[in-house]
Simulated scan of single mutants.
Amino acid sequence: MPYLPLKDGVSLFYKDWGNSTGQPVFFSHGWPLNSDNWELQMNFLGNKGYRVIAHDRRGHGRSDQPWTGNDIDTWADDISQLFDYLNLTDVTLVGHSTGGGDLTRFAANSKADSGYGTYGCKKSSWVKKLVLISAIVPQLLQAPWSPSGLPMEALNGQRALMLKDRSQFFYDVPEGPFFGFNRPNATVSKGLIQSWYNQGMQASFKAVFDTVTSWQTDFRADLENLDIPVLVIHGSDDQVVPFGVGNKTVDYVKDGRLKVCPGGPHALPNIEADGINNDLLEFLKE
């Protein structure tokens, strides 16, 4: 399996599938999952001739589990090193939930940073487009300018539940709000619940606990620094990152559009896979 040794000694797992000479698409997963959660999108686009790449964020999946570095800036730098190593250019970024946060920070910094990476890849040419699905931007934490966000008490409550019994909490989340299985007449998939649980429990406790702090990040300056097309996709019934948070993203970008998934839950790449796949394909072809 492919691993990249990062500059701080952490080993980062990644997948590089599809057409090696095709247009590249990079995926960043949500909390507390790993690159496996993108399998439907990667399989779909890979079969359409695209080069599809995804990593397991440090502390998650098959990547190493360091004690430190579980924060937005380090995650963005990890992605930068992977892009440098793979010599990627003109990449469309696709981030779900927390993955939308690290890709927003990465995209903003890659456009602002000039010069060449270790392997000769010009940084300003790394990113072509950005897709944010159910993302934590512009800020998940409630603020006067974002009243629909989650109050600090809610974030602290999630920390407390992990400290009390992470195993039970990691069943409660997918059985309820993540996939929208707590809604009346929902078609419940035990397989999706178990897959979420397995991926979550594979991650280090330190990483998933520290990630909660990233949800307090204000990404407005990052978004304003972007000069690329940005597609925002958000479900109107997202119980994890409220729709009132995600729909504000387009207010801070120069070239953005919002696509609403009526009644859609947080887990759009899973529950609305066909729609998400077609949205990605259409955006890639533009």
Score class of each variant (00 low, 15 high):
residue 135 A to S: 15
residue 141 L to Y: 08
residue 58 R to F: 06
residue 64 D to P: 04
residue 133 I to P: 00
residue 281 L to H: 01
residue 248 K to A: 04
residue 237 D to V: 11
residue 249 T to W: 02
residue 22 G to Y: 05
residue 272 E to D: 13
residue 173 V to M: 13
residue 238 D to V: 05
residue 226 L to Y: 03
residue 251 D to R: 10
residue 70 N to M: 03
residue 192 L to W: 03
residue 68 T to C: 10
residue 105 R to I: 06
residue 20 S to F: 09
residue 103 L to N: 00
residue 266 H to M: 02
residue 170 F to I: 09
residue 137 V to I: 12
residue 122 K to D: 12
residue 58 R to K: 11
residue 195 S to G: 06
residue 36 D to A: 14
residue 197 Y to F: 12
residue 215 W to D: 00
residue 134 S to A: 15
residue 181 F to R: 01
residue 95 G to Q: 02
residue 108 A to W: 07
residue 211 T to L: 08
residue 93 L to E: 03
residue 61 G to I: 01
residue 11 S to R: 15
residue 221 A to P: 07
residue 162 M to W: 15
residue 15 K to H: 13
residue 232 V to F: 00
residue 246 G to Y: 00
residue 64 D to A: 06
residue 240 V to L: 06
residue 167 S to F: 07
residue 243 F to G: 07
residue 128 K to N: 11
residue 237 D to Q: 13
residue 203 A to I: 01
residue 254 K to V: 14
residue 274 D to C: 07
residue 225 N to S: 15
residue 90 D to A: 11
residue 1 M to T: 13
residue 185 N to Q: 14
residue 19 N to G: 05
residue 142 Q to H: 06
residue 35 S to W: 08
residue 223 L to Q: 07
residue 101 G to D: 03
residue 200 G to D: 07
residue 267 A to P: 02
residue 183 R to T: 13
residue 132 L to E: 01
residue 229 P to H: 03
residue 105 R to D: 09
residue 272 E to H: 15
residue 24 P to Y: 09
residue 46 G to D: 07
residue 206 K to T: 15
residue 99 G to D: 00
residue 91 V to T: 06
residue 79 I to P: 03
residue 199 Q to Y: 09
residue 229 P to W: 05
residue 145 W to S: 15
residue 172 D to H: 04
residue 17 W to P: 04
residue 197 Y to T: 00
residue 59 G to R: 06
residue 166 R to P: 04
residue 239 Q to D: 11
residue 172 D to P: 05
residue 227 D to V: 15
residue 248 K to W: 06
residue 19 N to E: 14
residue 134 S to E: 10
residue 118 T to V: 13
residue 76 A to G: 11
residue 230 V to S: 01
residue 93 L to C: 08
residue 199 Q to P: 05
residue 153 E to K: 15
residue 254 K to Y: 04
residue 108 A to F: 08
residue 154 A to G: 13
residue 174 P to L: 02
residue 58 R to A: 09
residue 157 G to L: 08
residue 179 F to C: 01
residue 164 K to S: 15
residue 230 V to C: 05
residue 177 P to C: 06
residue 27 F to K: 03
residue 37 N to G: 12
residue 174 P to I: 04
residue 200 G to M: 07
residue 278 N to A: 13
residue 108 A to C: 03
residue 271 I to R: 02
residue 69 G to P: 04
residue 274 D to V: 14
residue 268 L to C: 02
residue 28 S to Y: 05
residue 111 K to L: 14
residue 53 I to R: 00
residue 217 T to V: 09
residue 286 E to L: 15
residue 218 D to Y: 09
residue 254 K to A: 15
residue 217 T to G: 00
residue 82 L to R: 09
residue 186 A to S: 12
residue 222 D to C: 05
residue 106 F to A: 02
residue 4 L to R: 05
residue 187 T to M: 06
residue 273 A to H: 14
residue 268 L to K: 04
residue 218 D to A: 10
residue 120 G to S: 00
residue 67 W to N: 12
residue 278 N to L: 14
residue 133 I to S: 00
residue 154 A to R: 15
residue 286 E to K: 14
residue 41 Q to I: 05
residue 146 S to F: 02
residue 209 F to L: 15
residue 122 K to C: 14
residue 161 L to N: 10
residue 46 G to T: 05
residue 72 I to R: 04
residue 26 F to W: 00
residue 60 H to L: 04
residue 104 T to K: 03
residue 75 W to P: 06
residue 143 A to G: 08
residue 79 I to G: 07
residue 283 F to S: 09
residue 260 V to C: 02
residue 171 Y to I: 10
residue 102 D to P: 11
residue 20 S to D: 14
residue 142 Q to D: 01
